[in-house]
């Protein structure tokens, strides 16, 4: 088992390395960090522009291979992902953005997973009743609705009356001072993005949960549990739901982990400066090192998600553990 895991991790490391290198080269060829300086008005002297960029390992006059080598050795030897085009440390920016994304996603993913499972199971128990039909139609509509539309729709609803009901731009209002008010304000700013993510996630998870739950409800072991004398409620919760959740959990874990860079629209629209926003902003600002860092992060996340969902599955399903 240990050797197998090691081999797998080694294989993963090679994949991440290739993905990151490919992204670095592609980004170096297609993005032009010097544009950020050339478009300044008044334009700084060319000489100083390229001296500055040279210091950040972004100078287009240096051969790509040399830049790549410096970038690679920086990461491997010092864990340093380089500089953004304006000289900030990519590491610092990465750390800050991961924290922002974590805060944004924590509540949303926990509520989304629990809510999705609960709604799905509830619908399965009441199959073909009006509540099931209504939520089926609703989930069809929500699943067909892109996140942008959900986000902007909620924003529009929020401001439909006189002024916004709930504040939503950024993490908190910079005019608020003091610890407690800032925390409260921060929570208020979480409401709309969290709702957006929930509306996108709950229908998705609940459809799977509903179908696995329906499988379980017709099963023999549930009838046995009832015959043993358990109440329907007990049997369904203790024997049914527990079994029905197993196939859904890896899906939940996989999607939750991938959401780290997948909440792009939510972060853009509500002004949260997290990883998802960086995915887009690093490209639009021609920031080669940042793009490469995001690529490494995303590649790492895909692998972690795969591993984690395997582990969760193994932990939940005894048949896999052998």
């Amino acid at each position: 088992m240990g050797r197998y895991l090691l081999r797998r991790l080694g294989n993963y490391a090679i994949l991440v390395f290739i993905a990151a290198s490919a992204t670095y080269f592609l980004a170096s060829f297609t993005l032009h960090p010097d544009i950020n300086y050339l478009s300044k008005n008044p334009r700084p002297p060319l000489h100083s522009i390229y001296t500055i960029l040279h210091g950040y390992n972004l100078d287009p006059h240096t051969p790509v291979c040399l830049r790549y080598w410096r970038w690679l050795t920086g990461i491997v030897l010092h864990g340093d992902f380089g500089r953004t085009y304006d000289g900030a440390s990519v590491n610092t920016e990465l750390g800050r953005r991961v924290l922002v994304s974590t805060e944004l996603l924590f509540v949303a993913t926990v509520l989304g997973a629990v809510g999705g499972v609960a709604v799905g199971a509830w619908n399965a128990l009441r199959q073909y009743r009006p509540s099931d039909r209504v939520s089926t139609i609703l989930s069809y509509v929500l699943l067909a609705t892109p996140v942008v539309v959900i986000a902007v729709g909620l924003r529009t609803l929020d401001t439909a009356g006189d002024g916004p009901l709930v504040q939503y731009i950024g993490m908190y209002d910079p005019k608020v001072h003091g610890t407690l008010p800032v925390v409260l304000n921060n929570l208020e700013h979480l409401v709309l993005p969290t709702l957006t993510l929930l509306l996108a996630q709950i229908p998705f998870f609940s459809r799977y949960q509903r179908s696995t739950m329906l499988d379980v409800l017709g099963s023999d072991f549930l009838r046995t549990a009832r015959a043993k004398g358990l109440r329907r409620r007990q049997a369904v919760l203790r024997h049914g739901l527990r079994t029905a959740v197993i196939p859904v959990m890896p899906l939940v874990v996989y999607n939750v982990v991938l959401l780290f860079t997948g909440a792009t629209f939510t972060e853009e629209i509500y002004g949260w400066h997290g990883m998802g926003e960086w995915l887009v902003d690093s490209i639009t600002s021609n920031d080669v090192n940042a793009v490469a860092a995001v690529a490494i992060f995303t590649a790492g996340i895909v692998l972690i998600a795969g591993l984690l969902s395997d582990l969760v599955y193994a932990a939940l399903d005894p048949r896999v553990r052998t």
């Binding site: 994949l15 290739i18 993905a19 992204t23 592609l26 792009t264 995915l279 490209i283 793009v291 995303t298």
Partner: peptide, 15 residues
């Protein structure tokens, strides 16, 4: 596997 690992959105955008 490599294609799964490569961040598709990033690459499409860069390209």
């Amino acid at each position: 596997d490599l294609m799964l690992v490569i961040p598709a959105f990033l690459l499409l955008a860069v390209l």
